[in-house]
Write a protein that binds this DNA or RNA. Structure first.
Lengths: 234, 234
DNA sequence: ATGCCACAAATAATGTACGATCTGTTCGAA
DNA sequence: TTCGAACAGATCGTACATTATTTGTGGCAT
């Protein structure tokens, strides 16, 4: 067995429906259970998920198409390496897309939408980062309220895909105090701009929000690297 | 055999290397040989490409991940429907991304780069749209000179993917005279801005360029639809 | 004794074949 | 005409064969 192989403790029992293997592998990748750059051997995965090799192979191909997995001919698949450059790249794209989506949202927003945003934000503030996992869900939902309504499915899907990746990375790192403060205040400012129909202001805040998020993640990745690589940060 | 099935004339002989089936199907999709919404039956495709079903299945999964194919469980795959909304969506994304890539290019451009751009543009003007296929290649190369150098591989890849789709669609339609004039003048303006290090000007022109391209394609799609759907427009 | 090349066995990806299961349709009876 | 069961067609899963790459071993020259 070589340096970094696939080790999944539980031979998760019987997920039969088509497409389930795909979701399982994908979830294992973005949740970090399958580490970046880990080799993905079809036989091992098939054993882990309790199926034969074909579903695994097809799942890997789909994941390759989505960019979660890189493959070399006759040399198999690996989990894509998610490094600082990777994060920077998708953040740069989001800095362009999210303000545009937000601007449009301002033009179609209703009172009910704003109420939902405020409810989501209230939950986030009530939780106050005590449960990082849960915070990630809530934060995603907050922004999803804004983006999911957009007519441009391509843009919204792109956002969602990037979001899942970033959320998976963030899960491994703590959120600095300054970042927590910034997140809360930026959310509040965003809601305020939306309410007063200030599209440009909202777009500017979102751009700042995304940039800040990216900067924070990259900083945390740097810290983790300097402290030496380890499986599970305390 | 139902309304729209896969009909490929030649049972193209023996493409053995791994990944070749994927490229063949992909090429058949973006070139329009496989029409939008056509059903993709693995057995038929396997016969067409002279392999067994498994390579085809995996190729389809990868194409699904890339968004060229949509699949329903137990109901197989279809070529994604490329309609006006589809084009509008990716154009909207490109209007955001391409100016950003261009802005950065202006900041790192060398004399040699500009010379290459001018050479490409000279070829385009010499050809003067007499061969649409070739024009598509040249135009792609022109913009590729600008985007391929960017450090953000995600953004550049996204551009490339969108570019291929748009090029495949454009191939089916003629280019209006007004569009031809606009393309040439915008290219020239772009080079001028780049030379005088006017990043904002270049970005603005690119935005206009992309928007105009999208508008033109959508108009042509509308014309084709009103004239009744047909396989090969004269 | 050490380093390097050639060759052989193991490991894993890729391709082929077949059976099971699901979906849509058609034919027949109420 | 409508409901239902049998049939056909295609997808999805399993098992197996083939091919490529890697690894380990042994011999040979330095």
């Amino acid at each position: 067995m070589s340096e970094n192989d696939v080790i999944l403790t539980a031979p998760e029992p019987a997920l039969d429906q088509p497409g389930k293997v795909y979701e399982a592998i994908r979830e294992d990748i973005i949740s970090g259970r399958l580490e970046p750059n880990a080799r993905l051997k079809v036989a091992d995965l098939a054993a882990s998920y309790g199926t034969s090799t074909n579903p695994v192979r097809e799942a890997l191909q789909q994941l390759r198409g989505e960019g979660f997995v890189v493959m070399e001919a006759n040399r198999g698949a690996r989990v894509v390496a998610i490094d600082e450059a990777f994060v920077r790249d998708i953040i740069e794209i989001e800095v362009l897309i999210e303000p545009a989506l937000t601007r449009w949202f301002v033009s179609i927003v209703t009172d009910a939408d704003i109420a939902e945003l405020e409810a989501a934000q209230a939950e986030i503030e009530a939780l106050n980062f005590s449960d990082p996992q849960r915070h990630g869900q809530l934060d995603t939902r907050f922004h999803q309220l804004i983006y999911d309504r957009h007519y441009n499915r391509h843009a919204a899907d792109l956002w969602w895909k990037h979001r899942e990746i970033l959320r998976a990375i963030s899960r491994r790192f703590p959120t600095s105090l300054s970042r927590r403060v910034a997140v809360l205040s930026e959310h509040r400012e965003l809601i305020a701009c939306i309410r007063r129909q200030d599209a440009e202001g909202a777009a500017a805040i979102v751009a700042r929000h995304v940039e800040g998020s990216g900067r924070h993640i990259i900083e945390q990745m740097g810290v983790a690297k300097r402290n030496g690589p380890r499986k599970r940060p305390a």
